[in-house]
Design a protein around this nucleic acid. Structure first.
Length: 315
DNA sequence: TCAATGGCATATGCCAACTT
DNA sequence: AAGTTGGCATATGCCATTGA
């Protein structure tokens, strides 16, 4: 799936706060389990909030307001699109990058449409899968770059919803899905409300954990479930070698050790959801002596920096 | 132009424990 | 008693990347 959206043409001062980006086009291609192309979907949406195109969006997509005004209401478009998704049975959304599902749900919330997606919402970020399969797993390539690297023919213009969906599908079809299929992403537009809704996924090489939301950061970062380090391979307690520490209040790190599986490095990031509640997304990962040493280094650097600050202040 | 992520960096202030 | 140190927390900004 790919979306095109517009933003306030006259700048942030005049924008509608709850809707920084207004979706005006939906495009999608449906693949089966074997990556065979089954069907496609495409539609325009008539703008309700920003009635002029921002010059960036206009230059990128080359659409005209005239054609958008012939489009459907957002509610009709979403209803139709979700119907198209569901008509052949179970489906999984795949996008290039992480932003489309966020903006889609933000638009749904703004236009008061109940969220049709299952919870928790797992999806494939094809940009990430491409990186895991063909690069270092961390790079974030532009769709056109990936298309070039894979030698896919560029027979249609980029930056239209349906064409980018077609290209994303073609990229995905060329990936080694046996290798990358385990690496699905977790959408956090809707965050866990209760402990029961919390999300913990074991990816084999690492474990991801999304906590519920708390009113204050203090409550969050002092929470026992967040701070506890259990080995995700055997379930045993992993004793802390270095307790949780932070460099900037957002990223926290620790080092633990499982009796059976050795060093486990932990990191969590404090995040804020749309309702202003604080939650954490934590990753535990088995590491080796070198990885452990990196954590020790990082901690001593933080200490040294603070020590230096003190002395500098005195002199 | 605007949103988001991750990494790195700077500055500041309070408190408790330890050292001198 | 005065000074030092680390822990903890807040705020901010830069860089590089992607998305529209």
């Amino acid at each position: 799936m790919d979306l095109e959206w517009n933003q306030c043409p006259s700048g942030k001062e005049d924008e509608v706060e709850k809707l920084p980006f207004e979706i005006f086009e939906i495009g999608a291609v449906k693949l089966d389990e074997d990556m065979n192309r089954l069907d496609s979907y495409s539609c325009y949406i008539k703008p309700q909030v920003y009635k002029e195109l921002h010059y960036i969006a206009k230059g990128l997509t080359h659409v005209s307001m005239e054609s958008l005004n012939d489009g459907k209401t957002f509610a009709d478009a979403v209803g139709e699109f979700i119907g198209w998704c569901e008509k052949d049975g179970e489906y999984r959304v795949c996008t290039w990058g992480t932003s489309d599902l966020v903006e889609l749900q933000r638009n749904m919330r703004y236009f008061d449409i109940s969220n049709p997606f299952s919870y928790p919402l797992f999806y494939y970020d094809v940009q990430k899968l491409f990186s895991i399969d063909r690069e270092d797993g961390k790079s974030r390539r532009a769709l056109e770059t990936a298309v070039d690297m894979l030698g896919i023919e560029k027979d249609i213009d980029f930056h239209r919803a349906i064409s980018d969906a077609e290209y994303t599908a073609k990229v995905m079809a060329l990936l080694d899905m046996k290798k990358v299929s385990a690496y699905y992403s977790i959408d956090t537009y809707r965050t866990p409300k209760t402990v029961k809704e919390e999300i913990k996924v074991n990816y084999g090489t690492y474990e991801k954990y999304i906590t519920k939301g708390y009113d204050t950061k203090e409550e969050l970062v002092n929470n026992a479930r967040l701070l506890a380090t259990r080995c995700y391979l055997c379930g045993g307690t992993a004793r802390k070698k270095i307790r949780w520490f932070t460099m900037n209040s957002k990223m926290h790190y620790c080092l633990a050790e499982c009796r059976q599986h050795g060093y486990i490095k932990g990191r969590f990031r404090v995040r804020e959801d749309e309702d202003g509640r604080f939650y954490a997304s934590r990753v535990l990962k088995i590491t080796d002596e070198a990885g452990a040493e990196e954590i020790r280094q990082r901690q001593s650097e933080v200490r040294k920096r603070r020590r230096d600050k003190r002395q500098k202040k005195k002199s």
